[in-house]
Write a protein that binds this DNA or RNA. Structure first.
Lengths: 233, 233
DNA sequence: CGCGATCAAAAAGTCAGACTTATATGTCAC
DNA sequence: GTGACATATAAGTCTGACTTTTTGATCGCG
């Protein structure tokens, strides 16, 4: 799943990135390239490449005569999938999941509305297939199978919206859904009402009913938000 | 405003990045690091750093024995501010503005609703100040002054939402608003109805009326969408 | 004729060392 | 105290040699 450290600089990033996003080096901290290179036992060129990547994510800023300084959290590129993964793996995972769920709640209804207008016949077919898959795995502790279809469902919606910005959130949504199933322990079967809503969304999209698709999807994401509030109010 | 090419690798990126995002090198194109280094007259180390940054944006993929291949558009990190800037400067600026305006329409109402719940007294003050500034510059071809306050207004809303993901879209919104004023030529004064809506949003946020703030903001962004439809249906 | 193993070339990846440049900071005269 | 100047520091750059992975071609065998 996770990109297994492409090259040496990638391996360095895999430990340095999470360390920074976890706040292990507080904002304003100063790192020196040479010291880091020694610490990770790589050449300076490799370390420089790693720093460049961190810099492009706005996690750090490299300045002459001073070093590599960690930037304040507010400046990070929090939409970078890599940064999201690092943060989800770290300590503030709950807060991160909260932010992402809100983002999801804002985007997905709009995406569903657009999908109702622009979805191809093939996408409609996929959608109903996913919904049926969810129904089939909704009872009897088949959580993994349910999750797969749930993720696929929301991915299709986002792609069918025709908006590239929405489409690129597919990975984020997948991460959130997976996180809910895996981390926050779910013993019980999914809420039957949610399953029904998914089926209805698929119908609405097929029927080209934008407002209905949007409204139903909003109910789904509102449910996700309430779920969070119950877990961590 | 724009980051003036920090270092040599930055200067390389400033021409290579826009070239790639403009589709000058179609997906699947293969570049060789050494050749690029020669072309830009920089050392291989510098070019490698530039490639690493492009790679972190998922614009290209570097593989041994094959070279640096351009990835399909669908895989780009379209939320990276740098990528957004490059694309806005390029040929598909209209489509990009469209995508971003839709994104805005989805996010800002939700952000306004949250702002009504969480905005501090100081933020409320800023908000009304911005709204008044918009009113003051709404007549008599003071478009630049109007723009400044408009941008500030939406930035405050996004920050006051308390959601870091929303807050980070401040730059995007600023870019969209500025693009509308500058590129799509606006001769006339802004729509009085829009100005009024901003004032009302400020009021609603101060009053803590989340649903009203959300609804009013949705009207604002709907207006922006309709504006786009008129310009490019 | 097809198919798998082997081999060579190509390009990225890595490293080490020398050198350049910007800049923060301390020093000194005034 | 303030300004100009000197110095040290860490990033930035370049070069050349070497390593590693991977592709695709060649060759032998069934």
């Amino acid at each position: 799943m996770s990109t297994t450290g492409r090259g040496l600089h990638g391996q360095v990033l895999e430990t340095l990135g999470p360390a920074i996003t976890a706040g292990e080096y507080p904002p304003g901290s100063v790192l020196r390239t040479d010291e880091l290179a020694q610490r990770f036992d790589v050449s300076r060129s490799v370390m420089r490449e790693a720093v460049r990547v961190l810099e492009s994510m706005h996690l750090v800023e490299s300045r002459r005569r001073v070093g590599v300084t960690v930037r304040p959290k507010a400046e990070w590129n929090v939409y970078d999938p890599q940064v999201i993964r690092w943060r989800l793996a770290g300590a503030d995972r709950p807060q991160q999941l909260r932010s992402l769920t809100m983002l999801r709640s804002a985007i997905e209804p709009a995406a569903a509305g657009l999908a109702a207008k622009y979805a191809t016949a093939e996408q409609c077919a996929e959608l109903t297939e996913c919904a049926l898959g969810m129904v089939a795995h909704s009872r009897g502790h088949q959580l993994e199978g349910y999750l797969v279809h749930d993720i696929a469902f929301h991915r299709v919606i986002l792609n069918a919206s025709g908006n590239e910005m929405f489409a690129r959130l597919g990975d984020v949504v997948a991460e959130v859904l997976a996180g809910r199933t895996h981390h926050e322990v779910m013993f019980e079967d999914p809420d039957p009402a949610a399953v029904t809503l998914h089926v209805q969304v698929a119908e609405a999209v097929r029927a080209g009913d934008a407002v209905r698709a949007e409204h139903l999807t909003r109910e789904i994401t509102m449910g996700a938000l309430q779920e969070l509030d119950i877990l961590a109010p």
